[in-house]
Amino acid sequence: MKRWLPFPLISAFLLAMWLLLNETVAPGHWLLGVAFAWAVPYFTRQMQPVRALKVRRPLIIAQLFCVVLFDICRSCIAVSLVILGPAKRRQNSGFMTVPLDIQAPHGLAALACILCCTPGTVWVELSADRRQLMLHILDLHDEEWWTHTIKQRYETPLRMIFE
């Protein structure tokens, strides 16, 4: 049954939505809805993401959340000062690469969310071997400081959580 109907709840939802959107329960729409509700999950089953992990180390998750929240607030102030400050200060932006140790897909996704949500940093590219991360930093004053900050404040706790 799982082979022919890989995600029964999604199929039931799709069928219900089909009937609601067409505003009819005519036999032809039931037939089209069943075909649609079966075909979409069946043909997209290979595109499903990696299974979610169990929550491990909730204390570290809470600590990481507080660190990220603090860093976002601090970064908002710093970015505001860069934007509203003198024009010559804006010339410090640039690209840098950070070596990565984390390999877990969920950990990389969490790191991407953290870095993209922090004002002044943008995740640009991840190398094919997942060992190098390219970032754009609005106020790139010291690459070593940024590398140390990312590895110690974000990557280390994420490795403890996901690996």
Rank of each mutant, 00 (worst) to 15 (best):
D101N: 14
F7Y: 03
G33N: 08
V50L: 11
W30R: 02
N22Y: 05
L138P: 00
D139F: 14
I61T: 01
F36W: 10
R74D: 09
L14F: 08
F162M: 07
L108W: 06
A110E: 07
R153N: 11
E143P: 10
P41A: 01
C76N: 15
F70W: 13
L111M: 14
C73Y: 10
L115F: 03
K2V: 06
R153T: 07
V55Q: 11
M1W: 04
W146Y: 15
M1N: 03
F7C: 00
L81D: 07
G85E: 10
A12D: 02
Y42I: 03
V82C: 05
T149S: 14
V122Q: 10
C76T: 12
W30E: 00
I61H: 05
D139S: 10
R159L: 05
V68M: 10
P99G: 05
L32A: 13
C73E: 02
C66W: 15
A87Q: 11
L108T: 07
C73R: 08
L135Y: 06
L111N: 04
L32W: 11
M1L: 04
C117L: 14
A110Q: 09
L59K: 10
R45G: 03
A35S: 14
P105D: 12
A39M: 11
L81R: 15
L108R: 09
F70D: 01
W18H: 05
Y42F: 15
A62L: 15
L126K: 05
A104F: 00
V79L: 12
S11G: 05
L133E: 02
E163M: 07
D71F: 12
P6H: 02
Q132E: 13
L69R: 10
L21P: 00
P86M: 06
A16T: 13
S93I: 00
L20N: 12
H141K: 15
V79I: 13
Q91R: 14
L138A: 07
L14R: 04
L20S: 10
R3F: 13
A104L: 00
G28M: 11
L111Q: 01
P6W: 02
A39Y: 07
A16R: 04
V67C: 08
W18D: 06
K88W: 14
F65I: 08
D71S: 13
H136S: 03
A16E: 03
G85D: 11
A78K: 10
V55F: 07
A110T: 05
L115R: 08
